[in-house]
Amino acid sequence: MMTDNHIISIIVEHKPGVLYEVSNMFRRRNFNIESITVGSIGKEGLARMTITVRGDEDTVEQVTKQLHKLVDVVKVAKLDPERSVVREMALVKVHVANSNVRSDVIQYANIFRGNVIDVSPDSLMIEITGDSEKINAFIQLIQAFGIKEIARTGITALQRGGKAFRA
């Protein structure tokens, strides 16, 4: 069976313990979370969790059903990647040995529409946003210079178009 990454967007009660409840369900049922991002949606004590799950179609269907069963989960939707905007942000600290490297890194950052957000004598920090492939590509490109640290947010996503997926 095909295993793929699937993006599930859920609206949850924004209160302590809900992240535990959700992640505990994944652990207990032996589902794999690739990434999870959480943030307030700015109203009615609700938050959105964007969860990337690896698995075949049957597994993902079970995941959505099990999520739906949790009382603190108000809405569940599986996002269609063709009709969604999917973004991830990464902070990458690159070692810059000399000024040539420095200008190369800045150039690459510009090509990838990244921002230089911190500078020190021997390093640069780049902020880059995009889908995961773009971030992977950027990281691969500058790997040769020597990456000191990476922090990635994990995926967040929204369905395109005027319709709102609301609680």
């Binding site: 049957d58 269907e61 079970q62 059903k65 099990q66 739906h68 069963k69």
Partner: peptide, 8 residues
């Protein structure tokens, strides 16, 4: 009555 049992 529990959708999650169907197909599990």
């Amino acid at each position: 009555i529990d959708a999650a049992e169907v197909g599990k």
